[in-house]
Design a protein around this nucleic acid. Structure first.
Lengths: 90, 90
DNA sequence: CGGCATCCCAGGTGATACTG
DNA sequence: CAGTATCACCTGGGATGCCG
């Protein structure tokens, strides 16, 4: 599945300040494997784009949200989407 | 080398209406393998972003340039670069 | 010059099972 | 629930050599 695309899919689910649990992301992106989801989230976290919030509870609860910097990526991605929609033919 | 990044590197070399021969691209991007360069150029071509121009000469000459649509990607990528430069810490 | 064919191997992936 | 561990597979990608 060429890894890279998943980061974008995850970002789109988190834009707008949405806070999602791990299992919510799994359900929101059925085509991704658990391993891939964790891997991409960890990379986004170490890139400072996503923040991982662990709630010390039983059962465990882990939430993911964008950092301010990650949220600021939204306009640039919108520019890309608008470009893609202006596609000429096929 | 995770393939994906090379498309961007190629695009940056072609922005501004520059027309480059295959061997010029090879020299401009020393870290890319020939196979990868061809592969990425072909994908960009089939995506309608790059135009491949074969001059029927001996010795052969093949030039690459952006399509109008490819050129219109420049502002969106600039938005991305500006976002990257606004990176907070490390 | 431009680029396709072949060989070959590292490591990326998915499936599965287990844990705090 | 939210992961980690293990393993076997298989494709992506580099290196090399040949062709029009």
């Amino acid at each position: 599945m060429l890894e890279g695309k998943w980061k974008l899919v995850i970002l789109f689910h988190l834009f707008g300040g949405r806070v999602l649990r791990f299992s919510e992301l799994e359900r929101a992106i059925p085509a991704i494997s658990q391993k891939m989801l964790i891997q991409q989230l960890r990379q986004l976290e170490s890139d400072g784009i996503v923040r991982r919030i662990v709630h010390p509870e039983v059962p465990p609860r882990v939430e993911y949200r964008l950092t301010d910097w990650g949220q600021s990526l939204c306009p640039a991605l919108d520019a890309l989407l608008q470009w893609a929609e202006r596609r000429p033919d096929a």
